[in-house]
Simulated scan of single mutants.
Amino acid sequence: MSKARKVLVIGGGAAGNAVTILLRRAGITVDLVEAKDDWNATAGSGITLQGNALRVLRELGVWEQVEASGFGFGSVGITAPDGTVLHAHDDLRTGGDDLPATVGMQRPRLQQILIDAVRAGGATVRVGTTAEILDQDADGVSVRLSDGTEHRYDLVVAADGLGSRTRAAIGITDKPEPTGMAIWRIAAPRPAGVTRTDLAYGGPAYIAGYCPTSETTLYAYVVEANRDRASIPPESYADEMRRLASSYGGHWPEITEHITDPAKVNYTWFDRLLVEGSWHRGRVVLVGDAAHCCPPTLAQGAALSLEDAWVLAQMLTGTDDWDDALFQAYYERRITRVRPVVEASVQIGQWQLDGVRDADVPGLMGRTMTMLRELP
C-alpha cells in the first residue's frame, strides 16, 4: 500500500481496538471514537478465549500480557448437577499447538490491555463521542462527530456492536433476534480445585458453568430460558442467580457464597445476528458484533470479532484499491467461517430448549472447532 489513508473506527471494543492497532502498525492514520465516557466500562465478568482468539491477540502483540493476566487450560469437564464429574476431554487447540487451547480472563483486564495497545500505537482516541455518516462517494466518507466537528475519511469501520447505529444508518436492516435463552454471570474468587471449565447440564437451569480467569478469580454463569427483563428488577439479580446456582454441587456452594451483590451480577439475553449479502455499503464496512453475533455456547463471539479485524486489516494494507470488490471479498472470506459457528451455536441452544436428548452436541462442536484451526 502506497497511498496515505485516514480511517475512522467507530467503537472501542475488541474488534474496533484490534483493527485500530493493526492499521496503525501499517502507518495508516486512525481516529477511534467510543460512545462511552468510560472506555473500559466492560459489561460481563469474564471471557473465555479459545486458541483462534489467542492467535489474533498474538498478532496484535499483546499475547504475553494476556498469558500473564489470564488462566490457561486445556480441558473441559461435564458434570451432573450434584457436581459428579461424568466426563472430561481435552479441548482442541484451535490457535495451533504453540498456544493453549483456552485462556479465561477477566473482561476488564483484556479490554485494558487492548486500550493500552491502541494508545501506544498512536491512534487519535475520542471517548464519550459518537459519529454520524453525512454522505459518501467513491473516494471517501464525510462524518460529523458529536463534538460538532466534521471530518473526511477514506474508510469508516463500524465496530459499534450488536445494536450498531452505523449498520442501520447505511441501510442494512438486519437486527439481532433473541434465541430464547439468557445468562446470569458473576465474577468470584476461584476455589483452588477449579482449574478448567466445568459444565453441568440439567437441574433448574439448562447449563451451570464456570471458567477460571486468573490465579485467584473465576467467572460463573447460569443459563436459563429468557424472561421479560422488566420483570426482574436489578436489585434482585443476586437473589435470582443465587437461587438457581444453589441447586448445584461440587464447587458451586463455595462460588454461590459470593453471589451477594446485585451490582456485580450481569443478566443478558442470547441473541443471534448474521448479516447476509455484504458487510459494507460504499466506504463503510462492518466488523464484529455489528455484522454477526451468536450465543456463547461455543465461546466464539470475541474470537470471530478479532478475526474480522485481522482479516480486514490484512486486506486493507495489501492493496491501494479500497473498492467494492475488496470489501465484498472480505465478506465472502469471513461469511464461510462465521456462518457455521453462528448456526452451530444457535443449534446447541435450540436442542436444549426443545429437550432433544439424543442430539449430537459433541459431534457438532468437534466439527466446528476443527474448522477453526485453519487460518481465517
Rank of each mutant, 00 (worst) to 15 (best):
R152H: 12
R152E: 07
Y153L: 02
D154W: 04
L155N: 00
V156A: 04
V157R: 04
A158F: 01
A159W: 01
D160I: 06
G161N: 01
G161H: 02
G161S: 00
L162C: 01
L162F: 02
L162D: 06
L162P: 00
G163A: 12
T166F: 07
I170S: 05
G171F: 10
G171W: 05
I172D: 02
I172L: 14
T173L: 12
D174S: 14
D174R: 07
D174V: 10
E177Q: 15
P178G: 08
T179L: 04
G180H: 02
I183Q: 13
I183E: 11
I183S: 11
I183W: 09
I183T: 14
W184M: 10
W184R: 05
R185M: 08
I186T: 13
I186Q: 12
A187E: 13
A187H: 06
A188D: 09
A188H: 05
P189E: 07
P189V: 03
R190T: 01
R190M: 06
P191K: 03
A192E: 13
G193E: 12
G193N: 08
V194K: 04
T195A: 13
R196L: 11
R196N: 10
T197G: 09
T197D: 09
L199D: 09
L199A: 13
L199T: 14
L199Y: 12
A200K: 03
A200T: 03
Y201S: 10
Y201M: 13
G203I: 07
G203K: 09
G203T: 04
A205Y: 06
I207P: 05
I207D: 07
A208N: 10
A208I: 03
Y210H: 14
Y210C: 11
C211Y: 07
T213E: 05
S214K: 05
S214H: 05
E215Q: 08
E215I: 04
Y219W: 15
Y221V: 05
V222H: 02
V223C: 12
E224F: 10
N226I: 11
D228M: 06
D228W: 02
D228C: 02
R229T: 14
R229V: 11
R229F: 07
A230R: 13
A230S: 15
A230N: 13
S231M: 06
I232W: 10
I232A: 10
